[in-house]
Simulated scan of single mutants.
Amino acid sequence: MEASTLVFLMISLVAGGLAGSTLTGWLQKRKTKKYVSAQEATVLIERIEKVFKVVMAEGYFTEIYNYQNDKNIWNLINDKKKALIIAKAKVLVGYDFGKMKFHRPDGERRLVIDFFPAPEILSIDTDYKFYDIEQGWLNRFHSEDYTAILNEAKQTMNDKAMESDLPRIAGNQVQLMIFQLASSMNWEIELKLPDGNVAMLKEFTHYRSVEAQVDSLGTTKE
Rank of each mutant, 00 (worst) to 15 (best):
E2S: 15
A3H: 07
A3K: 09
T5Q: 06
T5I: 04
M10L: 12
M10K: 07
S12Q: 07
L13V: 11
V14W: 07
G20I: 07
G20H: 12
S21V: 11
T22G: 15
T24N: 15
R30C: 08
K33T: 05
Y35I: 11
Y35T: 12
S37Y: 09
Q39W: 06
Q39G: 03
Q39E: 13
E40K: 14
T42E: 14
T42A: 15
V43W: 09
L44N: 10
I45L: 13
E46S: 11
R47W: 05
R47S: 14
E49S: 08
K50Q: 10
V51N: 04
F52K: 12
V54L: 13
V54M: 11
V55C: 09
V55G: 11
A57D: 02
A57Q: 00
E58C: 07
Y60T: 13
T62V: 12
E63L: 15
I64R: 10
I64G: 05
Y65S: 10
Q68F: 08
D70E: 11
N72T: 10
N72A: 06
I73A: 01
N75P: 00
N78Y: 08
D79C: 00
D79E: 00
K80T: 10
K80L: 07
L84F: 07
I85S: 00
A87R: 01
K88Y: 04
V93N: 00
G94L: 00
Y95S: 02
D96R: 02
F97R: 01
K99H: 05
H103M: 06
H103R: 11
R104A: 04
G107N: 12
G107S: 11
G107W: 05
L111Y: 00
V112P: 01
V112T: 04
P117Y: 02
P117R: 03
E120S: 10
S123Y: 10
S123A: 14
D125S: 05
T126C: 07
D127K: 12
F130E: 07
F130V: 08
D132Y: 02
I133W: 01
E134D: 12
E134Y: 08
W137R: 08
W137F: 05
L138Y: 09
R140P: 02
R140E: 08
S143D: 10
E144N: 08
E144G: 02
E144R: 12
T147K: 12
A148R: 09
I149G: 00
N151W: 01
N151L: 07
E152C: 11
K154A: 15
K154C: 11
Q155E: 15
Q155T: 15
M157K: 04
N158G: 10
D159K: 14
D159H: 12
M162L: 13
S164G: 01
R168Q: 13
A170F: 03
N172V: 13
Q175M: 12
Q175T: 13
M177A: 15
F179E: 13
S184V: 03
N186L: 03
N186W: 02
W187Y: 09
E188N: 04
E190I: 09
L191G: 03
K192E: 14
K192Y: 06
D195F: 08
N197H: 01
N197D: 04
V198E: 10
A199P: 00
K202C: 04
T205S: 08
Y207G: 01
Y207K: 09
R208C: 06
S209A: 12
A212R: 15
Q213W: 13
V214T: 08
V214K: 06
S216A: 14
L217C: 09
L217W: 14
T219P: 08
K221Q: 15
